[in-house]
């Protein structure tokens, strides 16, 4: 077994472990740290699969920018020990059963597909140059759409997150009156 393969399986195991930890944590900050670990592991996998550019993006944008957003939000919500207690109450064992069955069936389906398929050969490096050439060639329209999506997300986030002003409070009062 070559070094790359060992690295691949190790990183896979790390990613799986980190992900499982992410969804089971009670404390949001801990979960976030595990998620970042998982993302980094996936970045390693990208690199091993011959996609160094994607690996870079994963680290910079996902593990960097997006996760920082999460950190900010968690800090703003200021969820302390009491939140953890509530999480503990919410996360009873029984609640896992139904969703787990759904996920297991889905997993089984994809595994069936993969097993039945003919063996697929390994990967080769796809350089950033190829990506760039394609991105600004045939996919130009998709890039434009993505930029518009980001703009919409920006405006939407700004609108939603702005502080409640007088009119909003007033609205709430009216609602209370109606009730």
């Amino acid at each position: 077994m070559s070094f790359e393969l060992i690295l691949f399986y190790t990183a896979s195991a790390a990613a799986l472990f980190a992900t499982v930890m992410t969804i089971t944590r009670l404390n949001a900050a801990h979960a976030l740290l595990y998620l970042i670990a998982s993302l980094l592991a996936v970045a390693v996998l990208f690199y091993l699969m011959g996609a160094p550019f994607a690996a870079g993006l994963e680290v910079i944008i996902y593990a960097g920018a997006i996760m920082v957003l999460f950190v900010f939000v968690i800090m703003m919500l200021n969820m302390g020990q009491q939140t953890v207690e509530q999480e503990r109450q919410w996360l009873s064992l029984g609640i896992w059963i139904g969703p787990s069955i759904i996920c297991l069936i889905l997993l089984a389906e994809v595994v069936t597909l993969l097993v039945n398929d003919e063996r697929i050969a390994g990967a080769r490096i796809v350089s950033p140059k190829m990506v760039g050439a394609l991105l600004y060639g045939p996919y130009l329209l998709a890039v434009e759409l993505a930029s518009m999506l980001l703009l919409a997300g920006l405006v939407g986030a700004y609108h939603l997150a702005r502080p409640l002003n007088e009119s909003h409070l007033h609205e709430n009062d009216e609602k209370a009156d109606e009730e």
């Binding site: 070559s2 790359e4 393969l5 691949f8 896979s12 990613a15 799986l16 992900t19 499982v20 992410t22 969804i23 998982s38 996936v42 996998l45 091993l48 699969m49 011959g50 896992w96 969703p99 787990s100 759904i102 996920c103 297991l104 889905l106 997993l107 994809v110 595994v111 993969l114 398929d117 063996r119 697929i120 050969a121 390994g122 990967a123 080769r124 490096i125």
Partner: peptide, 23 residues
């Protein structure tokens, strides 16, 4: 460059997806 079996990558992707769905 040695070859990493692509089906293993896809399997991992599926497992991660399922875990995310579970969450």
């Amino acid at each position: 460059m040695i070859s990493i079996p692509v089906e293993h990558g896809l399997l991992l992707a599926t497992i991660l997806f399922c875990l995310g769905l579970l969450g």
